[in-house]
Amino acid sequence: MKVIVAGAGVLGTAVARALAVAGQDVLLLDRGRPGAGTTSTTFAWTNANRKLDPAYHRLNVAGMAEHSDLARQLPGAAAYFPSGALHWANSASAPWLTDNVDRLRALGYPVRWVERDEATRIAGALRIPLDALSFAHFPSEGYVLPDRLLGNLLADAERHGATFATGEVTGVDDGPGGVSVTLAGGEVRTADRVVLATGRWSERLAADAGIALPMLAGVERGSPAVGLLGYVRAPGIALRCVVHSPGLNLRPAAGGHTVVQALDLNAGVDPADPPSPDGPIAREIARRLSAVLPEPAPAPDIDLRVGFRSLPADGHTIAGFGSPRVYCLVSHSGVTLGPLLGRLAATELVTGRGQDLLDAFRPARFAGGPRTDFAADQHATRLGEQ
Rank of each mutant, 00 (worst) to 15 (best):
I318S: 00
L344C: 12
I302N: 04
L341A: 06
G315I: 02
A313S: 14
G338P: 11
T347I: 03
F308R: 08
D356R: 15
G354K: 08
L304G: 05
L340G: 05
S323V: 13
L344D: 02
E295S: 10
T336Y: 01
E348M: 08
R325H: 15
T336N: 05
R353C: 06
L349N: 06
V335I: 15
P324Q: 14
G322T: 02
P298N: 04
G352H: 12
V350K: 12
R309L: 12
D356N: 07
L293M: 07
A346G: 04
D303K: 14
Q355N: 07
A313N: 03
D301E: 15
P296I: 06
V350S: 11
T351M: 12
R343E: 14
F321H: 10
S323A: 15
G320Y: 01
T336Q: 13
I302W: 04
G354I: 05
R343F: 06
V306K: 14
D301F: 04
P312G: 07
A319N: 09
T351I: 04
F308I: 15
V292P: 01
A297V: 01
V306T: 15
G342V: 01
D356I: 09
F321I: 04
V292F: 07
L304S: 00
P296G: 02
V350P: 00
P339N: 05
S331P: 08
S323G: 08
G307V: 11
P339S: 07
D356M: 06
E295H: 14
C328F: 03
A297L: 10
R343I: 06
V350T: 15
V292G: 02
G322M: 00
G334I: 05
A297Y: 03
T347F: 03
V350G: 01
S290I: 05
F321A: 01
L341H: 13
G315C: 10
G334A: 15
A291N: 11
S333L: 11
G307Y: 10
D301A: 09
S310P: 11
A291M: 05
V306C: 12
Q355F: 08
L340K: 09
T347K: 11
P324N: 12
S290T: 11
G352T: 13
R343L: 13
D314P: 02
V335N: 00
V306I: 11
T347C: 05
V326T: 14
F308H: 11
H332W: 01
V326C: 07
T336W: 06
V330G: 02
D301Q: 12
A297E: 01
R325E: 08
L311R: 02
V306F: 09
V335P: 00
E348I: 13
R325A: 03
S323P: 08
I302S: 05
G315A: 09
Q355R: 15
P298W: 03
A313H: 04
